[in-house]
Design a protein around this nucleic acid. Structure first.
Lengths: 331, 331
DNA sequence: ATCAGAACTGTAAACGATTACAGTTCAAGC
DNA sequence: GCTTGAACTGTAATCGTTTACAGTTCTGAT
């Protein structure tokens, strides 16, 4: 591989001049032409590591979340990826974190400087993670609810408002016996869905009963299917809110296999509005939490922060939106 | 940020000794202990760029494909990510390539050395891309059909055999008027599906008619929906093979909205066996092309090649598998 | 033609690690 | 206590860039 010195020799100029034409600093037309010619002749590409070492920038941004199987994170990745694709920044994807330990280890390695910024969407809520994020000597954008005392850029969706919209919609369409198929309680979304559900039920003037919450242990379709299969008496319910579309899809599958009519007997609302929602049968009413948009905004915040390191941190809130489809039609 | 010199000073040893304990070369117990203590005290993390520059390794692997919206590539990414997560390698994700130009530009930047290897799954078939891949001075694993004259590690699925299995299954279950909803013809999968379909139809003893192929212009559900909506006379068909599950899902949606019974009137087979397949109604028979497994194998080949740069190139073929579900039940 | 100042160019010192080589310390056998 | 070879350690060069600084060339006004 040719290096900058080879190019300089070929062009008959100094390495400084080569560097300058690459980086767009002033050069005489003549010099520039010769350097460009030499670069083309030698197929020269400047070495990333050497540049990174000297300028203390890697031109890489790291995106971290816990689970590459969850369509909401995929959508987020799409948003981030699209936004970065027109910039000089490369995208490093870190995922598949199964434990807090692993996340801690990952956050520690950020100190090596392989990324100029970190976009992170932590699903677990843990003191150590929070501390490490605060201590990070680099731009961070946190996607999700900002923990107490952490001062970084943030993009956040008021999922609680989304849950309220869903419950209100169910009530308006005549449902009164509403259950929740929730995700795991050791995750932030699980905790928040539960709290939001309780609040929304009370706000709607219904009486809240703990037994109407069914805990799944993952956010997967299988868990949704299993959750429904454990329900002994469906007559206690006329609607379910599911903590995400995957759980909803699993539940609907159980329903269709067991002669439970949706929306006839039970109405279903999902969360995330993944593209699956419009393909299920019946099509699924879902709370759109705008994962892709949040990814896009996160990337924009990051780029903005990299261009402007000293600005105060920004917090962006996106509005959820209830997308009404067949699964909540009136009985 | 502390550097190796600061650690050396703190520990009262030379930088060489610090480097050696980090990299596991012999050191006296006493020395090692002092260095480790200093590292802990200073929160030292070795700088990636400096190390990369010296040892000529970035500890990064680049995964490139064209479309982050396609679930098959997501599955592949999962496979690669899982396999790399237990190694020192980070994953760089390059996608959202809308044109050959962009891919060419991307391939050229590989010369900067920001990645030690490239796993690529090109959807477009283009001479320039082929040439650049061959010329790359780094380990490459190509996922998909290997173009003529390219000698790199490869993992490949015999999708044609998968198509045959699907057609045979349809014939066995009494279907004779089989159509194809194909993806765009300027893509490799689109071209291959078409050829495989024609071959399989003939092999099954049915007469092949060009008009039974309907070209969609993307691999999306919307395109599948639109393709079905363009069909004037459904009585000409009793089954459709769709080039992927997304097209199938869109087609099924149109069918369900228009009173076409699946599998009563029309049987449907998808391709990719994404997790959507078991959640649709009816559940979708699909040819599993093992995208996740291919990703995993690709990553393994890459790691093996990095450990063993001079071995001859390996070609792995994975077997497709037909997963039979409700959408192809007998009439 | 001269001169001032602007515009450009080259030399050499970084950036933070790894590692060849030479020098030092250690352990064991006499 | 000496010797010897093995085991460890330190010095300094190196990887390929960028950039401050000093030196050179150019331009245009006199």
């Amino acid at each position: 591989m040719a290096n900058i010195e080879a190019v300089a020799k070929q062009a008959g100029v100094s390495v400084a001049s080569v560097s300058r034409v690459i980086n767009g600093t002033a050069a005489r037309a003549d010099t520039e032409a010769r350097v460009r010619k030499a670069i083309a002749e030698l197929d020269y590409q400047p070495n990333s590591a050497a540049r990174a070492l000297k300028v203390r920038q890697s031109e890489q941004i790291c995106l971290s979340f816990d689970d590459l199987a969850n369509p909401a994170y995929i959508a987020m990745t799409r948003g981030v990826g699209r936004e970065l694709s027109s910039t000089k920044y490369r995208l490093i994807l870190s995922s598949a974190f199964s434990s807090v330990e692993e996340i801690v280890k990952h956050l520690q390695t950020m100190g090596r400087g392989f990324a100029d910024g970190l976009i992170i969407s932590p699903i677990y809520s843990d003191e150590r993670i929070t501390k490490l994020i605060s201590a990070l000597q680099m731009p961070v954008v946190l996607v999700g609810t900002l923990p107490e005392g952490v001062d970084v850029d943030n993009v956040h969706v008021d999922s609680s408002a989304g849950i309220s919209m869903a419950i209100e919609h169910l009530v308006e369409t005549g449902r009164t016996k509403i259950g929740l198929i929730n995700g795991p309680l050791n995750t932030k979304p699980g905790m928040r869905r539960k709290a939001a559900f309780e609040k929304a039920i009370k706000a709607a003037g219904l009486k809240f009963d703990k037994s109407s919450i069914i805990q799944a242990n993952t956010f997967s379709p299988e868990a949704g299917y299993f959750a429904f299969s454990e329900i002994e008496d469906f007559s206690k319910f006329d609607a379910f809110l599911c903590a995400n579309d995957q759980l909803a899809a699993g539940a609907m599958k159980f329903a269709s296999e067991n002669g439970i009519s949706i929306p006839g007997d039970i109405a279903i609302v999902g969360v995330d509005n993944t593209n699956m929602a419009s393909l299920l049968h019946p099509t699924l009413t879902s709370v759109d939490l705008k994962a892709e948009e949040r990814g896009e905004i996160a990337a924009k915040l990051m780029l903005d922060r990299l261009a402007n390191p000293d600005r105060p941190s920004k917090h962006v809130t996106v509005e959820p939106k209830l997308v009404i489809r067949e699964s909540t039609a009136k009985k």
